[in-house]
Design a binder for these strands. Structure first.
Lengths: 403, 403
DNA sequence: TTTAGTTAGTTCCATAGCCAAACAAACGTC
DNA sequence: GACGTTTGTTTGGCTATGGAACTAACTAAA
């Protein structure tokens, strides 16, 4: 059944074609290497149709025949794989003190992963655009040198990004109402590919949804563990941004009214009791943003050593985190909640307590089937997701023009 | 663009046809009376295509020509409206002490609204099925007498209903793991129309999404105000049920750890501090379920009289409700949260306090554009939504067979 | 070495359903 | 009554799918 999610839009043949091209492309992505016959058998498309679709995709250099054939009764199949070489998708992640740029090919293979330090916290959005544009240009020229066509660029920003890509508030960066996508497009001077901006948690969720071990889950929530705590929500197989794009702001859910005062002015917000700040406030109150990673390493070391106050601190954080996740699970019933950011190294001391609280508080039988897992994508999840956002456009049928 | 939301499914011509039939049907629903030319101009479909689609819909007796024509230059248009007469969609809502059945035509016009008392709290699911089947049979025979074809029947249940329509837990009814849809289909002996089961909050949300004053909102949340507090979530224009169908269970979000013990065993759940039970525990601790409505009327009367303790109680409930809604708004960023059930008569004393808490706690600028509104659909919202669920199938292209 | 059996992928044709353009119909206006 | 305007139908062309027949390329067994 064809459904268009935002109001009814008429369909015609080009839509059928685009849909079926996307079906084949996604099938090959998930089942490569595979033959035309496999595709026909599994998707239900006619063999003839599959041949035509595959020919089209090969023409556009999205697929490639490996020539490899299996060894069994019958005519050997010509196997198909995604063609990694001719395209690239770029993702950029802005943080307080660094920018990360990644480029991936159609398969999601990482082509490069550059990290540049960057005084985001102190400079305005204008300077940031210049820095991002400079980095983007270098990535693009590298991709061009490798004879790759850039399909798009997406920027992940820690903050509220509205549905039009305007950065409304990015507290850690000190930005307000910045038209980052527009400014960056201008700075890149007609780049020939779309430039998009989205929230970092949303994009990290997208990365998990496409590349993570739970990529089959149509309903998942990714939780960022930085100074701020935010969530990206995938429901029914797509990112859900809400009416204005501000969904997933779980950092200021109240989990402990007796807790400390949050930077938002109220008490006991999830972020203030279970965010990374809540840990560092106790262990390294004067740490600057650029020292976060080192400080967390130190916390991990002390936890490994079994230091009692650290273990208690982490258990407490885990419990509060579990309460927050219970609210998430009760409201959204995801198949999995994935903890990211600095929660990853701390996970061994957080997850058990968090799970206990979670399962104790979820109303649905068996916790509604909701598992609490730890991200395996590393710190660059948002940047990876930003690149995945580009690939999503391709997957949903906006294929690059024929040669 | 054609997108299929749950994994890629191939499309063919029948899908194009179904999509376009649905487009025309929805257009006429929202813009009736209108001409073929209007449809073509607005939807972008070709005039010829529209003619063919309309002919098809008239054949299936979903549309009707009114013959009315405008009075202006050019050939007069033959106006089209939804044909109300030949079809009916049935919705049934089960409650602790009564069952409501409604039937609507394609326009959503209510054809009947029957309420039968019913000892749901004391009888098992088996008896309930018998009672529902009896009521359903009477509704069906009434519809048949009016020469209407029944398109489907949906049952709204206050409880956890999984994605397959199995009622996992319905605490107020005392049901567990009841295959209501299957049993009811059996009891109706090959009814010739689909029988579905869903959660009452989900279906009420659907009713608001289709018939309510905020029907244009693609992202809305409906909150039930009964003994239990639950939510139905519409995001990007569709009901979102989560992985197993248990989304929207907001009743046990913790909003006040110092609050009273909830029936779930923990403290300070939204339901226990802002549910109807929290009010009645103070005003009429011994009220039975069947007296709820009367008791609430009494609370309203006393609030109107300005009784101080009642006003304080309601203000307190409003504040807690606002905190819960802040969690909802932060997580989902809906365009509107709609309060239903017993919150409706109490709204004059709840909404102001709730809004204050809500807007004070939503992180997004301007509360993320989230408004707090009161349902105008009355107590039968879930039953109406159950009928709307049937109409949704039609709208998404599963049209009744040709004559 | 031949023959049968199996699986892969292409070719050919029928069909469905869209769009564009021409056309017929029915009205106001001058 | 001629003309312009708008509506809706008819006709033909085009695209893409599906089914059936066919070719291709292999294994297995006689």
């Amino acid at each position: 059944m064809i459904t268009s999610h935002n109001g009814p839009q008429p369909a015609d043949f080009t839509d059928v074609r685009a849909t079926n091209l996307a079906v084949v492309l996604r099938f090959v992505r998930e089942n490569a290497p595979c033959s035309r016959a496999d595709i026909a058998a599994t998707t239900g498309l006619n063999k003839a149709t599959v041949s035509s679709l595959v020919a089209d995709l090969i023409d556009r250099r999205l697929l490639r025949e490996t020539g490899l054939t299996e060894h069994r009764v019958g005519r050997p199949a010509t196997m198909l794989v995604l063609d990694g070489s001719p395209y690239a998708a770029i993702g950029i992640e802005v943080n307080v003190d660094y920018i990360t740029a990644v480029a991936v090919d159609l398969k999601g293979e990482e082509l490069l992963n550059w990290r540049r330090s960057f005084p985001g916290g102190t400079s305005g959005a204008g300077q940031a655009v210049a820095a991002m544009a400079a980095l983007a240009r270098r990535v693009v020229s590298r991709m061009t040198k490798e004879a790759r066509q850039v399909l798009g660029l997406t920027v992940a920003v820690p903050g509220l990004v509205d549905v039009n890509g305007i950065v409304r508030v990015a507290p850690n960066l000190g930005w307000r109402d910045a038209d980052l996508a527009g400014d960056l497009t201008k700075a890149l001077r007609d780049p020939g590919f779309p430039v998009l901006v989205d929230n970092d948690a949303n994009l990290a969720a997208l990365a998990e949804h496409r590349f993570g071990p739970h990529r089959n889950a149509a309903n998942l929530v990714y939780v960022t563990g930085e100074v701020g705590v935010g969530a990206g929500i995938v429901m029914d197989g797509r990112l859900r941004r809400g009416g204005q794009g501000y969904s997933g702001e779980i950092g200021h859910i109240e989990v402990d009214p007796a807790g400390p005062t949050c930077r938002c002015g109220r008490r006991g917000c999830l972020e203030s009791v279970a965010g990374i700040g809540a840990i560092l406030a106790r262990t390294a109150p004067d740490a600057s943003p650029s020292e976060l990673e080192l400080e967390i390493d130190d916390v991990v070391r002390r936890a490994r050593n079994g230091e009692r106050d650290i273990l208690e601190l982490l258990e407490n954080v885990g419990r509060h985190l579990g309460r927050g996740m219970a609210a998430v699970a009760n409201m959204l019933n995801p198949e999995v909640v994935i903890l990211g950011g600095y929660y990853v190294p701390l996970a061994p001391w957080l997850v058990a307590c968090a799970e206990e609280e979670l399962y104790g508080r979820v109303l649905a039988p068996g916790g509604g089937g909701c598992r609490l897992e730890v991200s395996t994508l590393g710190y660059g999840a948002a940047a990876l997701g930003a690149a995945a956002r580009v690939l999503d456009s391709v997957d949903s049928g906006r294929l690059p023009a024929q040669r």
